[in-house]
Design a protein around this nucleic acid. Structure first.
Lengths: 199, 199
DNA sequence: CATAAAACATGACTAAAGTCATTATTAGCT
DNA sequence: AGCTAATAATGACTTTAGTCATGTTTTATG
């Protein structure tokens, strides 16, 4: 590891410490470099911007949750229906959002994602594990004759994850009135059932 | 109209002019007050922040579109099915987003909404006309025996508008790869049909 | 119309992100 | 080791949002 890499590491860890104590907005770049014993310019050698650092911090955070989601699904009884799996997965993700990540960090995720120059692929990249996890549940549902759709599975998976993101965004902008868990459940019920009269 | 109100008007209009020439980020508060021939402090008497001014500007923009949506629906042949109405409405909204408002302004809307202190009720308030418009189409669908759902209409309407917002957000963060119009169409097909095997 | 209170306006100031020309350190090479 | 090029670090500086104590104008009132 070159000198530069370890300096970056120091900055990142120093910042991470501060982020656990205070809101992102309350931690200044000056705070970080002072605590790290470095100059401000050094910060900008390793991070494009303060938001870019926060994005790395959040990516790191979000990265691990998909592993949790997978584990959660694997822990379900083998005869669970695909519908129940999907709803259980939705319940799990909303739990994590509410209890582990928190609405404040999620708001930042959604804000930073709108800044085109900052890379948040860990969250939105289609290679994110979550897309595959959802696709697997959908495949299972089709294999079991439980689901029936003309839309290809990976397309469907993208739409489901998008719906989850839409729900989470709505939660962020309507917090605390919006009950994410309940709304997500209802929304996926609608998504699964549709509203068209069955012929 | 008191003196204050007209000063606010001047600031707003000056800013609006500049916003048509340049990105929000490129227009500074100093630019605005200089062009308006006022002091910086004056700006902050009338606007809580630069973002608050932008929010007012965007609200004004977004406000009118719902009237367009209503007009669009009214222009459809009277025997149009509710399904077609809904899909046509979705098509219309995506047209407006893409061609009239633009992804850049929408990104700002979504960013500002995440700033809890700024009021964007014209966009997200449940009294927004769009919620009623969607509810009306849904009622029609139920009256015609076309739709069938246990979920109350106004709840359903909120979920549909949320889906639309989710799609638009996704468009913003994936622009220009994400084809909003096509994706919205597919998404609402899924939402209408569901994916459960019909019994 | 004199005057006090309220409303409006000012601009120098602070805070914080981000820049960049300069300086210091490290690594590779003979 | 001595020299050079690349890499790393510096901090004074710029930019821009936002503040606030002070000053000016308007309005209401005896």
């Amino acid at each position: 590891m070159g000198k530069g890499e370890s300096t970056k590491q120091i900055l990142f860890e120093t910042a991470a410490e501060l982020f656990l104590q205070k809101d992102f907005n309350k931690v200044t770049v000056d705070n970080i470099v002072e605590k790290a014993g470095l100059a401000k310019g050094t910060f900008y050698i390793y991070f494009e911007s303060k938001d870019a650092l926060i994005a790395e911090f959040l990516n790191y955070y979000v990265n691990n949750v998909d592993t949790d989601y997978k584990a959660h699904l694997d822990s379900l009884p083998p005869k669970t229906t695909a519908t129940d799996m999907l709803l259980s997965l939705v319940g799990k993700t909303t739990d994590v959002l509410i209890n582990t990540i928190g609405y404040h960090k999620m708001s930042f995720v959604y804000k930073v994602q709108l800044t085109r120059t900052i890379n948040m692929d860990a969250v939105k990249g289609y290679n994110r594990k979550l897309y595959q996890i959802v696709a697997d549940v959908l495949s299972r549902g089709i294999a079991l004759g439980e689901f029936n759709t003309k839309v290809p599975i990976d397309t469907l998976s993208k739409h489901f994850v998008m719906a989850l993101r839409g729900l989470s965004y709505e939660w962020c902008i309507r917090y605390p009135e919006f009950d994410l868990k309940e709304q997500a459940h209802t929304h996926f019920q609608i998504l699964l059932n549709g509203i068209l009269e069955k012929k």
